Amino acid sequence: MNSAGTWATVTSGISFSQFENVLGVLDVPAMSKNTFLKKEVEVEKVWLKHIDNALVEAGIEERRLAIEKGDVDDGMPFITVIVDGGWSKRSYGHNYTATSGMAVIIAERTGQLLFLGVRNKYCCICDRATKIGMEAKPHLCYKNWDENKPSTAMEQDINVEGFKMSEKMHGVRYKYFVGDGDSSVYAKLVQNVSYGRTIQKLECANHCIKNYTGHLHKLAADKTFPPDSRKLLKQSIPRLTAAARGAIRHCADEGETVDDSISDLKNWPYHVFGEHAQCRNYFCQKVESNENLKIITNAKLLDEITALVSRLEQKAPRLIKNKTSNAAEFYMSLLAKYNCGKRINLGQRGSFQRRCYVAGSERSCLGTKPI
């Protein structure tokens, strides 16, 4: 009964105190906190065993598919993977001090989990013993990360470990990987993985467009520009972002070149603001123009927008395949559910790590479900 209660607590995305409150309302006695922690360790073994088996099976399938497709270099099959990482608490863009972090490597072709790693820089038992100047009693310690190292480096370290193990674990190399705008992961892979110089990064199109949209909104809110031009830009942001996303998608679907993609990206702001001289027939047959481009140009907003577009142009070679990290984001959404929405500190005695395993177990059970 206690094991079932512990299983239900973790997989419901709540903590022991919430579990205790529910049973209290029902007038049912709950197990002690120590019993709950012991049972949590027991059920962790079940989840970990399931994930280990799922990783092996996923690797076998990916290797088979790569060989069938002829994706082999120097006698070693290669595949495309999706990588992403997260932490046990929200950073809000500036507070990267989480005590635990994790990262996943997911096969792009099948959507199956290939590697899951967790780093913990804190153990409450070790910390208490240190504070009172005593040696910690024998215990299961989850601390595997130097507390003096930055939490932001956890994702890089886990990905390096996963890439290093790809040949031994799955018999494949991760030649291409899809990731967000974090360039530090790619640099570490090139430096530390035996086949690092052959690894190529593909940008997540959704992340690039999200960043582009965010900067457009900042421009529209910048009061150094005239009000009429800012209002026009704000109204046009949905079209500007949809246009950029459409250009990336079209070039991938039609097998067009990087130069074609760059040409479309450069032209889209002009198209949105009414200038169609450089528009291609697949999306526009208009010839007339309007005053919107003049308003934006006179306010010098067009120069700012063009500068933002140039960032996308620089990434065009890595956007040409229109890849996204949706599979990894899906895992992160599962983890957020089990991780109590990052509202509770679960990084003291391995609870965060166990919930990573639960999310991984569910992700493996869902298999190649469309995302």
Rank of each mutant, 00 (worst) to 15 (best):
K131F: 07
R173E: 11
D157A: 12
D157C: 08
G181D: 12
K175P: 03
K121W: 00
D182G: 08
A153S: 14
D180L: 10
W145F: 11
Q156Y: 00
N148C: 14
G117W: 00
S151F: 02
K131N: 07
Y122Q: 08
G171K: 09
V160F: 01
M165I: 02
A136C: 14
D180E: 15
S183Q: 10
D157M: 08
E155R: 06
H170A: 14
A153G: 09
L140D: 15
N144W: 05
K175I: 04
E147Y: 12
K137F: 07
A136H: 06
M154W: 02
R173C: 07
K164C: 04
A129W: 05
M134C: 08
W145L: 08
Y122F: 10
V172F: 03
F177Q: 12
A129E: 02
Y174H: 07
K149I: 09
K164N: 04
G179H: 04
Y174C: 05
T152L: 15
S183A: 13
W145D: 03
C123H: 03
F177R: 13
T152G: 11
E147F: 09
K164M: 02
C124E: 11
G117P: 00
F177Y: 11
V160A: 04
C124D: 11
G179E: 07
D157P: 03
F163W: 01
S151G: 15
G181A: 15
I132V: 12
W145M: 07
E135Y: 06
I132R: 15
K131R: 12
Y174A: 02
A129K: 08
